[in-house]
């Protein structure tokens, strides 16, 4: 099985977040980037599937040179090839356009993504990419197995303690839910070795795309700020004993 794992480099703690002048993106400062946690689970699942069924794992990301770091992490976890599309695609729709174009060149049997990125928090890119590729998809998947030569069976969450077993013909795209496999720690020595792997770099032009194709459309970001606290929200301050005493009093009032 040829598996492509789409993974995103996400910033750690961000500061100085502001809207770009044209209202089409956010800018920010951040000390470091790491692999989006949900995507790490997709990567771990790919490793297990390869062990079970054989094949190849390709890790794919979009971003500037600095995002290559997470591809080394992917390689250390077990990716055989690493590919970066050199582009900026903060807008989820744009990301799905770039990923779909790159995936067409990679001809995977199975594409894995996470369910959400911690910066955009949109849960959009995986399924949107599947639609662009016109392949079957499932979101929030907690188990994957082969079902014959040209299909998989997945268990997906429906919410409220419900799930469904779904049969998807291959090729397919699956958004992997957190917890599907334990996350494995990457020892520094393995990461050092992984750095020797050369990422393949693709430009938008290589994919037949232009900047205009991936420009955000249909909206503008007006502002970004900490949200207002709910009316009545009250911070109980003071030393722990005092704050707790105040809290118990409030709880007693509420009954």
């Amino acid at each position: 099985m040829k598996i492509v794992v789409c993974c995103k480099a996400v910033p750690g703690a961000v500061t100085d977040v502001a809207v770009e002048t044209r209202g089409d993106a956010l800018r920010f400062r951040s000390q470091f980037q790491s692999m989006n946690e949900c995507d790490e689970y997709a990567m771990e699942e790919a490793v297990v599937l390869k062990r079970l069924y054989g094949g190849e794992i390709i890790a794919l990301t979009i971003g500037g040179v600095s995002t290559q770091e997470i591809l080394y992490t992917a390689a250390a976890k077990g990716a055989d090839r690493i590919v970066r599309v050199d582009a900026l695609a903060q807008d989820p729709r744009a990301a799905s356009i770039v990923l779909a174009a790159a995936l067409k060149t990679l001809a995977a049997d199975l594409v894995l993504t996470g369910t959400q990125s911690r910066d955009s928090l949109s849960s959009f890119v995986g399924v949107a990419t599947a639609q662009r590729l016109d392949v079957p998809f499932a979101f929030a998947v907690t188990a994957i197995e082969k079902d014959g030569d040209d299909a998989i069976k997945v268990r997906k969450e429906l919410g409220g303690g419900r799930s469904a077993d779904v049969r998807l013909p291959l090729p397919a795209l699956v958004c992997v839910q957190t917890g599907i496999q334990p996350l494995n720690y990457v020892p520094p020595a393995r990461l050092m070795r992984a750095r020797q792997q050369r990422p393949q770099s693709l430009s938008l032009a290589d994919l037949g795309l232009t900047l205009a194709d991936i420009a955000p459309r249909g909206y503008r970001i007006a502002s970004v700020a900490p949200p207002a606290r709910a009316a009545g929200a009250q911070i109980l301050s003071g030393p722990p004993a005092e704050a707790v005493r105040a809290l118990l009093a409030k709880m007693a009032e509420a009954g």
Binding site: S96, F124, A128, A130, F137, R217
Partner: peptide, 26 residues
């Protein structure tokens, strides 16, 4: 709804129709 069901449906519909979409809205 931005529920498990809606998280799957919303991007699929928005992409097919080519409409602008915002998810996880409060």
């Amino acid at each position: 709804g931005f529920t498990l069901v809606g998280m799957e449906l919303a991007p699929a519909i928005a992409t097919r129709l080519g409409v602008a979409a915002m998810t996880n809205c409060v």
